[in-house]
């Protein structure tokens, strides 16, 4: 359960203040599938970063699973990110010198899990995302779709309750993008909350709930009645 109340995020650019998030009120229930759309600069990424605890609002309340986030310490925030949140980025953000398997393993290492258990989990993930053949390849040796599969495997390896995807198909061609979306939706079917920022109307329409943003405000918030 994500509950944002009167959230503001203001960036100071020289003597100009950019209101990236302007009095945002938003509730997302566990297991929802939400798409966020809107023109460039409307605050989509900022919203996602605040939900994902990477950024802090300048004012307002944020409760995640009934826990008030706003006054947690840096280390507590890191722990929640580790355990409850999985990020998927447009540019994949894989570490180039690590193999696919090692990239997927990273969150487990950060959590302090013993190596034997990590191995089992990583092998399962490689299998689930059909990456066994690519386990020991570095990102440079992978296709865009494979890279995003590695990134999704990494985002889900800790079995988070929320997946935040910021234009996950932005760097992929249409068909591969659709495949990646299917993978993310499969996670949603297993109960994970899925929030996807996209520019693609068609992809955005697949979500059960669509949020439209402009100038840091939520303009539209509609449920898809096909579901």
């Amino acid at each position: 359960m994500i509950r944002l109340t009167d959230i503001n995020r203001i960036f100071q650019m020289g003597d100009q203040a950019v209101h990236a998030l302007n009095h945002i009120d938003l509730r997302i229930a566990s297991g929802e599938y939400v798409s966020v759309m809107g023109p460039s600069g409307s605050g989509k990424s900022t919203l996602l970063n605040i939900i994902g605890l990477l950024d802090k609002p300048d004012s307002g309340r944020y409760e995640l699973d009934d826990r008030l986030i706003t006054d947690l310490s840096e280390d507590e925030l890191a722990q929640i990110r580790r355990e409850k949140i999985g990020f998927v980025f447009q540019s994949f953000h894989l570490i180039p010198r690590l193999t696919a398997a090692e990239n997927i393993e990273l969150p487990l290492i950060l959590s302090g899990m013993p190596p034997e258990q990590r191995q089992i989990r990583v092998n399962d993930a490689l299998q689930a995302f059909e990456l066994q053949q690519r386990a020991h390849h570095r990102p440079a040796e992978l296709s865009g779709g494979q890279r995003q599969r590695v990134a999704i495997a990494r985002a889900t390896i800790m079995q988070p309750s929320v997946i935040l995807a910021d234009e996950p198909t932005g760097n992929l061609d249409h068909q591969i993008g659709a495949e990646v979306m299917l993978l993310l939706e499969a996670l949603h079917h297993r109960g994970t909350t899925l929030i996807v920022v996209t520019h693609d109307r068609e992809l955005g329409a697949r979500a059960h709930r669509q949020i439209g943003m402009r100038d840091g405000r939520i303009l539209t918030d509609q449920d898809n009645d096909t579901h």
Binding site: D75, A78, Q79, R82, E83, F87, S111
Partner: peptide, 16 residues
Amino acid sequence: TAEIGLLKAIGATSGD
């Protein structure tokens, strides 16, 4: 730098 940001996103603490 981007790698450090990624590590933070997947839950690394400043100490890590």
